[in-house]
């Protein structure tokens, strides 16, 4: 997913995450959820936080940033998602949104 500015990123995240059924099947294999402090450290959490961010219903609080940046991008979750969601793509796109919001790469 190449970022063509914040709007394109948001549109991509919205489309991808709207497929989520909240079944949690992705969580079983996620290493960071098992060792992490809450659901935000797992794929179901990351997908749904990304969704809130993309819809403008949440902001990059430290908990949200931690959720996104603690992901290993290991794709174990992809093996189990019945919705076929590109979870890692969503996490990366959300990180890109964060970077844009922080003007780190200006």
């Amino acid at each position: 997913m190449q970022s063509n500015g914040a709007e394109a990123l948001r549109a991509y995240i919205r489309a991808e995450t709207s497929k989520c059924m909240f079944c949690g099947f992705c969580e079983a294999l996620c290493p960071t959820l098992y060792h992490g402090p809450h659901r935000g450290y797992g794929p179901r959490g990351r997908v749904n936080l990304a969704r809130l961010i993309a819809r403008g219903e949440a902001s990059f609080t430290s908990d949200v940033v931690e959720s996104m940046y603690s992901c290993l991008l290991c794709k174990a979750c992809h093996l189990k998602c019945p919705g076929g969601i590109d979870i890692v793509g969503v996490v990366r796109a959300t990180r890109s949104l964060y970077v844009l919001s922080q003007e780190v790469s200006a």
């Binding site: 909240f22 402090p37 809450h38 959490g45 749904n48 809130l52 961010i53 949440a58 609080t61 959720s67």
Partner: peptide, 18 residues
């Protein structure tokens, strides 16, 4: 502190079901 979360976005992750 570590056992309580009130960030509204995280709380939303615990407010939903399939």
């Amino acid at each position: 502190k570590g056992k309580v979360i009130d960030d509204p976005a995280i709380v939303k992750l615990y407010s939903k079901e399939p």
